[in-house]
Computed example of a mutant assay.
Amino acid sequence: MARGEGPVLTSVTAAYLQRNLRPQVRSITVHPPGIVYQKPYGTGDPDLAGFDNQTTPDRKLAQAAQNAQQGGSGSPSLGRRTYHKGLQTIMWRADDENDDELTFEVQYRREGETTWKVLRKDLQEPILVWDTTTVPNGTYFVKIVASDARSNAAGNALTGGLESATFEIDNTPPEFRIGSVRLDGPRTVVTFDVTDDHSPIQMVEYSGDGQRWVPVFPTDGIADSRTEHYVVTLVDPVGPRGLTLRATDSMNNVATTQVSAPSGR
């Protein structure tokens, strides 16, 4: 160093801990009862045969890049839509401004209750299919809690949550209450009520052969309540197999009953 020249600062390196921000659950979608989705064909790296650890850092980065292209925790990749009675699909959209890896806990409670019950823990995808036949009929809420604990030390991890709007669970079919089966000249008149403890009646039909179904409307003209009254007038005589009645409520629960021909025919 020449005389009179001082030291020269050429670079500075500083290490810092980024401030952790709380993850956000932006929205929750509760699909109609019974609507489920098949898993799509895989588009990422396949698992390696004979290699136990499929979660090495390189493979995690590859999976993270694939998830980012598909929207991360915001939009799970879905396959073909189908129907399965008793199942309820719940999806949500969540993000983290630190780009932390998120896991999810799904909680639920019935209307009128104050305690949240845990349905699933440590979910990595923003979708859950719930077998609702495991709980009583009623009005329910779900809550999604997102955690960034996998990317932060225990003392720095944060959670964020969101509650859904109410939705109905009903897996019990309607009930028939047969009033009378009588002759009115050459015609047969059947009167009955259809009731449901939780959901409105949606449709009632009858069939004489179990193949051709004829819709029936309630006496008030529209099926929109949990109790409906019906009068069916048949021009043709009831056959030896009787008359089959079928009722469906708004949650796609189905009930059937059989009515025999009136005596005296």
Rank of each mutant, 00 (worst) to 15 (best):
M91C: 12
G71H: 01
D220F: 05
P126A: 11
I178Q: 12
T89K: 08
V204H: 07
K85R: 09
L245W: 01
P215F: 05
G239W: 03
G34D: 08
E111P: 00
D131W: 07
F217H: 11
R150Q: 14
T166G: 01
P173F: 05
S73H: 06
A65C: 04
D131I: 09
A261G: 12
P126H: 03
G138Y: 04
D209C: 08
V25W: 00
P240A: 13
N67C: 00
D100R: 05
V8E: 14
R81H: 02
L234N: 02
S151K: 06
H229C: 00
V194F: 01
D45L: 13
S207G: 06
T56Y: 00
T172A: 06
H31E: 14
G160C: 02
P7G: 03
S207W: 06
W213T: 06
E163G: 01
D47V: 11
V190D: 09
V190N: 06
V181D: 03
Q202F: 05
R182A: 15
P33W: 00
L61K: 14
W116E: 03
P240N: 12
N137G: 12
Q38M: 11
I35W: 10
G71Y: 02
R93C: 10
P237G: 08
P76V: 15
T82I: 11
V214S: 10
F167T: 01
T115L: 14
V238W: 05
T227Q: 13
R26G: 02
S77L: 15
S77V: 14
G161N: 09
S11I: 00
A261E: 12
T191L: 03
Q63M: 11
V189N: 09
R150G: 02
T191V: 06
P126Q: 01
L245M: 06
A149Q: 14
G112F: 10
F176V: 04
R226M: 06
R246P: 04
R80C: 02
I201C: 10
Q202K: 13
T82G: 07
V231E: 15
G42R: 11
N252D: 13
D45S: 11
G210H: 07
P173K: 04
A261F: 05
V216K: 07
A153Q: 13
P262D: 04
T82N: 07
V8A: 11
A255M: 08
I90C: 07
N67K: 11
T139H: 04
N253D: 13
R177M: 10
G210A: 11
